[in-house]
Write a protein that binds this DNA or RNA. Sequence first.
DNA 1: AAATAAATTTAGGGTAGTCTAAAAACTATT
DNA 2: AATAGTTTTTAGACTACCCTAAATTTATTT
Lengths: 219, 219
Amino acid sequence: MNSFTEENYLKAIYKLIEKSGSSVSTNAIAEKICTKAASVTDMLKKLSDKKLINYQKYQGVTLTSKGEKVALSVIRKHRLWEMFLLEKLDFKWDEVHDVAEQLEHINSDKLIEQIDKFLNYPKFDPHGDPIPDANGKIQVQKSKSIAHFIKNDVIVMTGVVDHSPAFLQYLDNTGLALGDEIKIKEVVFFDRSLQIIINKKSTIFISNDVAKNILAIKK
Amino acid sequence: MNSFTEENYLKAIYKLIEKSGSSVSTNAIAEKICTKAASVTDMLKKLSDKKLINYQKYQGVTLTSKGEKVALSVIRKHRLWEMFLLEKLDFKWDEVHDVAEQLEHINSDKLIEQIDKFLNYPKFDPHGDPIPDANGKIQVQKSKSIAHFIKNDVIVMTGVVDHSPAFLQYLDNTGLALGDEIKIKEVVFFDRSLQIIINKKSTIFISNDVAKNILAIKK
DNA sequence: AAATAAATTTAGGGTAGTCTAAAAACTATT
DNA sequence: AATAGTTTTTAGACTACCCTAAATTTATTT
Ligand SMILES: [Mn+2]
Ligand SMILES: [Mn+2]
Ligand SMILES: [Mn+2]
Ligand SMILES: [Mn+2]
């Protein structure tokens, strides 16, 4: 089995590769995990010995298929637990992440399959991120940040880029939630801020900074 | 906060004190935790520094009220998680313990209070053990092993002494479960084995060894 | 092609927790 | 009271993970 720490490294590497589309650097991992480069190098050697990553000194890191499997399993557990907390225990979407960071390391196949069943096999987590299935398969969604849409587009909110409680609470206050219909009423030219209509009811203004962190698809 | 390991030591000490009614020895802890006496001594020093136990070299150990609070919180979490697994995720009573050993260390007040609420504030776990409330209060049950009852007593099964999957599965096979009514039909003189009637239906024989591990109260 | 800057690794060390073997302290027996 | 046996503690070492500081390698400028 892999330790807690090893799982966190693999998950971090997976997410960095996912975002950048290429191999990841020691420093990038250090920053993501909030640790020092020297510690990362130590761990990379260990993960490489265990054949979980492809690593050659100074050359950056990718996951082996074995390592990717572990990473996807941790991500699956994280997102299923987030969903469980939200749906069954009345957590808010800004409260689920920290607890899921702990729960994702619980090791029991039966447990996670039963949670999945209990939730009726959800495909997406409370933040709109896809939940890998038991085989690690992910259902991709071709959503874009709403900063990329144009006037009069009618779209559906499908996710967030920034997962911080502060941002999620801000969205709560504006009344924006996953699944909402958004109509782009106006794009302000000089700062790209938006005037949007939520669910054909309330009209609000959001900055381009906020818009970039909201994901949606054409309706 | 306390580490996993510290929590496990405190829980072990609590249970040993509960069973023996007195202070516990280094060796007893080592056996309970499946570790060596030298390791226990190290940890006792640390727990003593943190004012979680009362410890003087060679004199045995008791819990401070601070240490007892931690132990009871871990036990509360363990038993609530066992109940959750049984009630909501279709685990059997012989499957819940190992997973609860991991889940008991998850640190989130909101999580455990919501689990408690979700289960409708159960007072006992799947093995009949009492679940401490949020303040550490335990509801005591004055049950005795059924080896202590006599011919024609009508009793209700309330718990088990042996928690091993092997014993629990044996009980499943005999058809015995918590809450069952048991009538002592016969006590065999030479080996103290019992003939009992379960729920006024099936009659079975159990050895004294088994009887000693089943707890019940007079109906 | 050097020289400089940035990224990465190595060296050496720290804490938490574990172990074995040996010393010290209690306990029981004569 | 001395001896033998048991329990507990100490000494010293190991693994996992982390750190700082120094050395090394790679990347960028000149
Ligand atoms: Mn999360
Ligand atoms: Mn999420
Ligand atoms: Mn248990
Ligand atoms: Mn139990």
